[in-house]
């Protein structure tokens, strides 16, 4: 009897978790339970995370009355594309998506340029008053948005920037947090690369342009995605500064649609789905970098 045990124990554990090889003792019936428990918990949290979005997409396929129907039905009777067709046929929706997209691109390029130049200077150059400037720049990182939201509005009003693309693109582009993040990355670039180039007579600008920029892809993806997302998702600043419908930002459009056409819930859900799509696609394309970027941030 005793001789049988060593034979069966590995056999059972290999059913539970074939690919993993650790010295842990979660084999046997208890091991199966642990694996099952993990699977249940994992599925539950994933469902919880994705459920509201699934619900949004599905509601987009329902008819106007079906969305608020009693008794409740999870899936529509017939999957209708009308909501999607109608919202895409609304010139204001299409314009709003395009304007926001163009603005977000501009904002992202500006943010990458401004912040990486500053990051490079602080990481690699020596100049007079470096410490003073560093403290000046980095202090802005600790100022919560709300403290300056109101006076920022007063400032842009004085600068006559209200109701222009500039008021959306310029104010948030410079970011001490992004500069800080990029500087940390540039600090880790080996000095040897730079020294060789300096011996060849390359200027600091050439070193930035030809050595640092090409290496910046991982940080550029993280900062670029964060900037794009911040612009695409912003709502409060646009409602304060943009009144002309030609420049309506997509979040502003959705919120306005909700208050002006309250009955068209299916269309609102279809519009929300389409409005979430660009950032969702961007995220899925770059997810490896973005999730990896959380590690680069060096939160220890």
């Amino acid at each position: 009897m005793a001789a049988e045990t060593p034979v069966t124990a590995p056999a059972i554990s290999s059913i539970g978790r074939a690919p993993r090889k650790t010295g842990r003792s979660d084999s046997g019936p208890k091991g199966v339970l642990v694996v099952a428990g993990k699977a249940v918990m994992g599925t539950l949290i994933v469902l919880l995370a994705l459920f509201p979005l699934a619900w949004m997409v599905i509601a987009g396929f329902k008819s106007r009355s079906e969305v608020v129907e009693t008794p409740f039905q999870f899936f529509p009777e017939i999957w209708r594309f009308e909501n999607y067709q109608q919202i895409l046929a609304d010139p204001e929706f299409v314009r709003s998506m395009s304007v926001t997209f163009a603005g977000a691109l501009l904002f992202t390029v500006l943010s990458l340029t401004v912040n990486s130049l500053g990051a490079y200077a602080f990481a690699r150059l020596e100049f007079a008053f470096k410490n003073v400037l560093w403290v000046y720049v980095i202090t802005t990182m600790f100022i919560p948005g709300m403290a300056i939201l109101l006076t920022s509005f007063v400032v842009v009003t004085r600068l006559r920037m209200l109701d222009t693309l500039a008021v959306l693109v310029l104010p948030g582009a410079a970011s001490a947090a992004h500069l800080f993040f990029m500087r940390q990355y540039y600090l880790n670039v080996p000095l040897a690369l730079e020294e060789a180039a300096t011996l060849d007579g390359a200027s600091k600008w050439a070193i930035y342009r030809h050595i640092f920029l090409p290496m910046s892809k991982p940080v550029f993806v993280v900062v670029g995605m964060t900037s794009f997302l911040a612009f695409w998702n912003s709502y409060v600043w646009p409602i304060m500064t943009i009144t002309s419908r030609d420049l309506y930002q997509i979040q502003q459009y959705l919120a306005t649609f909700r208050s002006e056409r309250a009955a068209e819930l299916g269309m609102l859900m279809a519009g929300s789905t389409l409005a979430a799509l660009p950032v969702l696609i961007l995220f899925l394309v770059f997810q490896r970098h973005i999730i990896g970027g959380i590690k680069i941030a060096g939160l220890k």
């Binding site: 995370a49 509201p52 979005l53 619900w55 949004m56 998702n233 709502y235 919120a255 979430a276 995220f283």
Partner: peptide
């Protein structure tokens, strides 16, 4: 990826969806 997806959704869209989830009717 699944757990991170809500992070990229805007506050406005989240609000719209949750208002519907909490709706009295349906």
């Amino acid at each position: 990826v699944s757990i991170y997806i809500p992070t990229i959704i805007s506050g406005v869209i989240a609000s719209i969806v949750f208002v519907l989830i909490y709706n009295y009717q349906g």
